[in-house]
Amino acid sequence: MPWDLPIPPWFPIYLSLKVAGLATLIALVTGLAVARLQMRRKSLYSKVLDALCTLPMILPPTVLGYYLILIVGKRGILGDWLAAMGIELIFSWEGAVVAATVVVFPLIYKSARAALESVDPRYEDAARTLGASEAKIFFLVTLPLAWRGILAGSMLAFARGMGEFGATLMIAGNIPGRTQTLALAIYDAFQAGDDPKALSLVLLTSFICLSILVAADSFLSARIGRGSRTRLGSGKGNRPAAAGSEVSS
């Protein structure tokens, strides 16, 4: 973006949507893969991995930002390699995507794992005796029966990504027109005493996040309504609300 032009007022919104969207997409693919690997595992190794994957939800975003700088910063572990590849993460919007991905990953991983594990294992057993490979079972049986919970988790992750502040600030900085997302723009406007701008951005952010939460909730309750109709008669196995309660707690 040329520096002599004024920054359009919608830029922070556009950037926030782009960063949150990309971060959600990356976290969805990786989170789903890890959730599938971890599914119904109870070993010590798997418990440690589970805790590691959940950690970004608990740690202050500044701690995550610091870790990320240690890893992808110019003098970080991967710094030389990233420079050789021509990838610049510090003070760039791509860096904001990396920060947001790490922050939203646990939300997707947790809800995806709960959703996958809530599928009655007898469907998977039936598929095995029908000669299906584990990949076929995942794509044709487990995933279609779990997708509502996974989608609801992804929407929460997107909403959380929209509001990401700490880790983004440490990696991507707060450069208007380049890395200034909604959350950062609000802080900036407040610091500069521009209350009308701060308030309008605050209301806008609230509205976007509220709509996402309402949409996520209606997906989950639709799952319960449908679920009771399609469940096996035995009454064991499926816990329809598990995905939602897991992430909202």
């Binding site: 009655d120 007898r122 469907y123 057993d125 039936a126 598929a127 095995r128 005796t129 029908l130 000669g131 299906a132 490979s133 044709l140 049986v141 279609p144 029966l145 399609t230 469940r231 096996l232 008669g233 035995s234």
Partner: peptide, 20 residues
């Protein structure tokens, strides 16, 4: 041998038809 290569048909108690 894994279940998928055994060619053993198995009808579960509640049939476990794929609900979707």
């Amino acid at each position: 041998r894994p279940a998928r290569t055994r060619h053993v048909g198995y009808l579960l108690q509640d049939y476990a038809l794929f609900p979707h």
